[in-house]
Structure formats: structure tokens, C-alpha cells
């Protein structure tokens, strides 16, 4: 655990230094999106990686976060920082309400239910006048200010807000993984029956995981809305986002706190670069390449890239030990 903490601090320090070394706008843009997606991946990892309940509907929580902060800012001039926290609370409440009926379902049925719930929430927002329905919300443009979380001259503040959020989230995930809750969630993932037999209230723990996951996702959503300054239901509640979260975590390493970061640092640059280079004609190429990678991972290393890294590290370690023995 202590070792993990050191690694995490190093990773965050490197991420903090990167935008100061590479100063191009497009690089900064990639960094912001990468960190937002990595945060979403971490959130998804709690419910699916740890607790084993596959969710295909995380765009719902992401969207609720984005909409809460945007509506509050747009309608009532309330700072997005407040909106962010409220968004998190709303998303957590929605997660709580959804969890009760859906956790009676198991396996793929639960996955289908999450997919449906996300779609229902999207339709609600499309026909909801108060949030401008399908037209979407253009956030009011103000001068650069930390209070309103809007910066037009430089992207650096966005990067550091996103990094701050990601850092908190990854430390929270690390803490959860090594705590009683983490052990209980993993036990539920491995076997429902066993979990019950050793005194775990499976429904409560799954709901807790879902609520934490939704809370974090909503924070990422608010930040995303403040970054792009325009949201509508079709871009926020889209299946595309739900699936991207799943894919990048699976590629990076499901159930591992480093997984989402690794996955995001492959998928996001890939999709941004292809988008910039190929424009509209290249739509979907990033996901095609990514799909191929995921198939390879699923076939050869189900634990993702992090699994591969661990395997190689182990091999080196063994060889190292062998050498020591040979020398002595």
C-alpha cells in the first residue's frame, strides 16, 4: 500500500510536469480529455472492476453531473464548483434509486438494465424544456475566472483541475481497494454465495459501490461541461461515452487502479489525433483500432496491459533472482 502511494505520487508529478514541457494547445486538449476519461474509468472500475457488476450506463451519471452544474450556472448564476458537488449528490441519489431494482438482476441482465436506464435518462433530457431539451445548453461566456471555471486564453487551469480531481479519485480508489469495502466488493465479484456466507450484505455493498462510482462520474461530467462550454443530450448521454469508459478500462486493466489511466492514455490521443488528421471522413477509425486492441487483450491477456506489465516484471525479477543465485 505504501509502495502504491509512492508510485501514485510519481505518476501525478509526471502528469503535472507534462503540460509545462509540451506547450502545444492540442497536447493540452488531449491531456484534459485524457484525465477526464481516466477519472471516469476509475469510477467505472469501482462498480465493475471491484464489485463485478457490469455497467454500460455510466454516461447517465456523467450527464447528470454535466447538466446539474450547467443548468445551475446558466439559469441561476451559481458557480460550477457548487454545481459540481450538487451534481455528484444528484447522481449518487439517482444511482441509489436505480440500484434497488437493478441489483436484483444478475450478470448480463444487470448490464442490459444499466444500458436501458441510461437511454431513458437521455430521452427525459431530450424532452425536458427547463434544460433546453434537444437544443442543448450553451454556457454563458465570461472572462477567465476560477470562480466560474472558465478559461479562454490558456488550457492549463483545466488540466490542473482535471489532474486534481483525478489525483483525489485515484487515491480514494487505492484506499477503497485496500480497505474492508474493497475486500468485500472483490468477494462479491468472485462469488455471491460465498460473500453471503461470510456475512456480507451483498445488496448494500453493491449499492455503496454504485453510489461512489456515480458521485465521481458526475464530477468528471461537470468538468467536461465547463471545458467544452456546450452540452446537449445527444453528446452527453451517448452510448459512445459509456462504451469508451468500458473499453479503455478493459484495455488498461480491469480491477486495477492504474488500468484506466493506461487505457485513457492510449484511446484519447488516438481518437483526438485521428479526428484532427482525418476530420469527418475518419470517424470511428479510433474505435476500430481500439477494438482490435481490445480483442487482442481479451484473447491473450484478460487482465489488460497492466497484466502484461506485471507478467514481464515478474519474469525479470525471476531472472534477476536466478542471476543472484548463480553468482553466489
Amino acid at each position: 500500500m505504501v509502495k502504491n502511494k509512492k508510485t501514485l505520487i510519481i505518476i501525478i508529478a509526471v502528469l503535472a510536469a507534462l503540460p509545462l514541457i509540451f506547450k502545444s494547445d492540442s497536447f493540452h486538449n488531449i491531456m484534459v480529455l485524457l484525465l477526464i476519461y481516466a477519472t471516469l474509468g476509475e469510477a467505472w472500475n469501482i462498480i465493475t472492476g471491484f464489485a463485478g457488476q457490469i455497467s454500460f450506463g455510466h454516461a447517465a451519471f456523467f450527464g447528470i453531473g454535466a447538466y446539474t452544474s450547467s443548468v445551475l450556472f446558466y439559469r441561476f448564476d451559481i458557480s460550477p464548483w457548487v454545481g459540481m458537488v450538487l451534481g455528484g449528490i444528484f447522481a449518487a441519489m439517482v444511482a441509489l434509486i436505480i440500484s434497488y431494482p437493478t441489483f436484483r438482476l444478475k450478470g448480463s441482465y444487470f448490464a442490459i438494465a444499466t444500458l436501458a436506464v441510461a437511454e431513458i435518462i437521455k430521452q427525459l433530457f431530450v424532452s425536458w424544456k427547463f434544460v433546453e431539451g434537444a437544443t442543448g445548453i450553451s454556457l454563458p461566456i465570461v472572462d477567465d475566472s476560477w470562480l466560474c471555471m472558465e478559461f479562454h486564453t490558456t488550457k492549463l487551469p483545466y488540466i490542473y483541475i482535471a489532474l486534481g480531481l483525478f489525483a483525489i479519485v485515484i487515491f480514494v480508489c487505492n484506499y477503497i481497494e485496500n480497505s474492508k469495502t474493497g475486500f468485500y466488493l472483490k468477494a462479491i465479484r468472485e462469488s455471491h454465495e460465498v460473500a453471503e456466507s461470510i456475512g456480507i450484505n451483498t445488496t448494500n455493498y453493491k449499492t455503496l459501490a454504485m453510489v461512489i462510482s456515480a458521485f465521481i462520474s458526475a464530477f468528471a461530467g461537470s468538468l467536461y461541461a465547463q471545458y467544452v462550454l456546450y452540452i446537449d443530450p445527444f453528446m452527453i448521454f451517448t452510448l459512445d461515452i459509456s462504451i469508451k469508459i468500458v473499453l479503455l478500462t478493459v484495455l488498461g486493466g480491469i480491477g486495477n487502479i492504474y488500468g484506466p489511466l493506461i487505457g485513457a492514455s492510449i484511446l484519447i490521443p488516438l481518437s483526438e489525433i485521428t479526428r484532427v488528421q482525418l476530420g469527418g471522413t475518419g470517424r470511428g477509425i479510433d474505435l476500430m483500432i481500439f477494438g482490435l486492441l481490445v480483442i487482442l487483450v481479451a484473447c491473450y491477456q484478460p487482465k489488460g496491459i497492466i497484466g502484461l506489465v506485471n507478467k514481464v516484471a515478474k519474469k525479470f525479477k525471476k531472472e534477476g533472482e536466478g542471476n543472484v543465485e548463480a553468482n553466489s
Binding site: 475486500f183 468485500y184 472483490k186 465479484r189 462469488s191 461470510i198
Partner: peptide
């Protein structure tokens, strides 16, 4: 029914957390 992806120690610890 062992918890497959967890080590022996983690398996038992899960019980101990009760």
C-alpha cells in the same frame, strides 16, 4: 468456492473483516 482472483491470505482476510 474459493475466491479465485484473491490470494489465500486475502481469502481469509475477507472473512476476518466481519
Amino acid at each position: 468456492q474459493t475466491l479465485k482472483e484473491m490470494t489465500v491470505e486475502e481469502n481469509i482476510m475477507t472473512g476476518a473483516f466481519l
